[in-house]
Design a binder for these strands. Sequence first.
DNA 1: TTTCGTGCAAACCATTTGCAGCAGC
DNA 2: GCTGCTGCAAATGGTTTGCACGAAA
Lengths: 146, 146
Amino acid sequence: MVKSFDPVFDNLRKRGHRITPQREVILQIFRQLPNGVHLSADELYVKMNELGYNVSLATAYRTLKLLSSFGLLRELTFAEGHKHYELKQDSLPHQHIICVNCNSTLEFEDHFLEEIGQKIGLKHHFQVIDSQFKIFGICPNCQLNK
Amino acid sequence: MVKSFDPVFDNLRKRGHRITPQREVILQIFRQLPNGVHLSADELYVKMNELGYNVSLATAYRTLKLLSSFGLLRELTFAEGHKHYELKQDSLPHQHIICVNCNSTLEFEDHFLEEIGQKIGLKHHFQVIDSQFKIFGICPNCQLNK
DNA sequence: TTTCGTGCAAACCATTTGCAGCAGC
DNA sequence: GCTGCTGCAAATGGTTTGCACGAAA
């Protein structure tokens, strides 16, 4: 990975932030994540340690917040009381269906909702950062096991 | 308020729950709330004490959870790290625009998104409970004060 | 060399819970 | 009278923070 050519690192530098090994590792992990997978701070922390990178949980939190603050990551809250993060790939806008019983999530692609969010935001003079459509319900599996 | 004729109390009883003064107060407060206002557990607690009802914070949390569990209240998470609740009035579906800078929220009515949520949920065989569309951005006010 | 970033542990804060007494029904 | 509900205080769990040291620029 050639740091100087990576737009994310350029972006960090431009804002006066530094490129550290910890930030490189975190970014790399998110980039290698299968499509649609999102991590909590703790899951990220565990994964880093499994891979042999000794990054502290505090740094995980700080980095997730930093990368979200300028739109590289998307911050998601479902129902379990902690946040999840995923790479924000403008190419693949998608939303979530959440089972309030087992907390599982399902994704569905949708370019349309993304546009609606932009439109409504603009109408109210907001500078839109992210639009999230969440459907809460009971998944097929949990409907059976009741 | 005639308890026996209130569908909410009927609903509670039907599920084996009891009608207590605390639950009556909480329901009453939510019903008297101006349209579109939502409360956190703590805000509800403070309001109850201001009105002279000494209900504990624990009971506030327990009641909010209970009333949300069968769809009387809608549980909202914005960005400040605590949940908000509002009466779920099927007559007035609405969604939120949230300023990630000052945490203020703006509402917009929308019947359309409600239907989309139902449709997408059904397609994936979910029993839909609530659909929430959230737009995160910077509000006009915060754009100026930068 | 000047900041900024990190690790650690302690602090924070929203929320949950164990328990004893009280109150619906 | 049985059992669920409440209040209290303590516990929990995710997240943040103060501080001293190490490292990017």
